[in-house]
Amino acid sequence: MIIAVLSLFPEAIRPYLEQSILGQAEKKGLVRFLLVNFRDYARDRHKKVDDRPFGGGPGMVLKPEPIFEAIEDVESQLGSFRKILLSPRGRVFRQAMAEDFAREERLLLLCGRYEGIDERVRMGFDWEEVSLGDFVLSGGEIPALAVVEAVVRLVPGVLGNEDSAKEDSFAREGLLDCPHYTRPKNFRGMEVPPVLLSGDHAAVRAWREGEARRLTRERERSGEGGAGHGNVTKETNNPEERREG
């Protein structure tokens, strides 16, 4: 699998991709990460990638030309990619989406910045817009990393134990995972449930299934299982983020 991430800050993404499961997956040749700074495709001598919005208003908007040319260059070399735009307009990211994306040979994720992306970028390509929820971020890099990790751990051979992914929260009928315990049996008066020490595998499976369903019901009753609609990426009052270009 090839995963391309288009960002103005690829140097912020690379260190995370080199760690733990993601780093091992790349070393094994199971996935290739391609980080593209679309500023490299800006044509003016200042490498300007944003400009003021038509019609006025605050903030800066990412220009279409560098993004178009970056995507076209990547696809001319490697073939067509399934394209994901991290956007507050998108569907909230779910485990089922990660499973779907993990079947692809090539994924491309675009990270927005500042006030937003010129609408013609949306119009010019076939995007699937994805959001992590209703909260504000300064860019799409953190959501992109969340999507990448959720997808890569589902690629065959990435996890040491393939059953780990099957038992994760939301992997089975949208259920949360059950509680887990390890040694010591008693920690500060908090004891491991006796069934987990019983050696009765059928009873353990039944307990885990029941706990998973209980936790899922509690989450739904609390209203925290509902879907949000957008992790907004726009400029803030941080002077570094307000700079032009």
Rank of each mutant, 00 (worst) to 15 (best):
P88F: 01
G90L: 10
G90Y: 04
G90T: 09
R91M: 08
V92G: 03
V92S: 12
F93V: 04
F93K: 05
R94E: 15
R94K: 15
Q95M: 13
Q95T: 13
Q95I: 04
Q95P: 00
A96L: 13
A96Q: 15
M97P: 02
M97V: 06
D100T: 15
F101S: 11
F101R: 06
A102Q: 11
E104A: 15
E105L: 08
L108S: 07
L109K: 08
C111N: 09
C111T: 14
G112Q: 11
G112C: 12
G112A: 14
R113M: 11
Y114M: 06
G116C: 09
I117C: 07
D118G: 10
D118K: 04
E119N: 05
R120E: 02
R120M: 01
R120S: 08
R120Q: 02
R122D: 07
M123H: 04
M123S: 13
F125P: 00
F125S: 05
D126H: 12
D126Y: 01
W127G: 03
W127F: 05
E128A: 10
V130Q: 01
V130Y: 02
S131P: 02
S131V: 08
S131G: 08
L132C: 09
L132K: 01
V136F: 06
L137K: 04
L137S: 14
L137R: 04
S138N: 15
S138K: 12
S138C: 14
G139E: 14
G140P: 13
P143I: 08
P143Q: 02
P143L: 07
A144T: 09
L145W: 05
L145N: 03
A146K: 00
A146F: 09
V147W: 01
E149T: 08
A150K: 01
A150R: 00
V151C: 09
V151D: 12
V152A: 07
R153I: 12
R153W: 07
R153Y: 05
R153A: 08
L154D: 06
V155Y: 01
V155G: 06
G157K: 06
V158T: 03
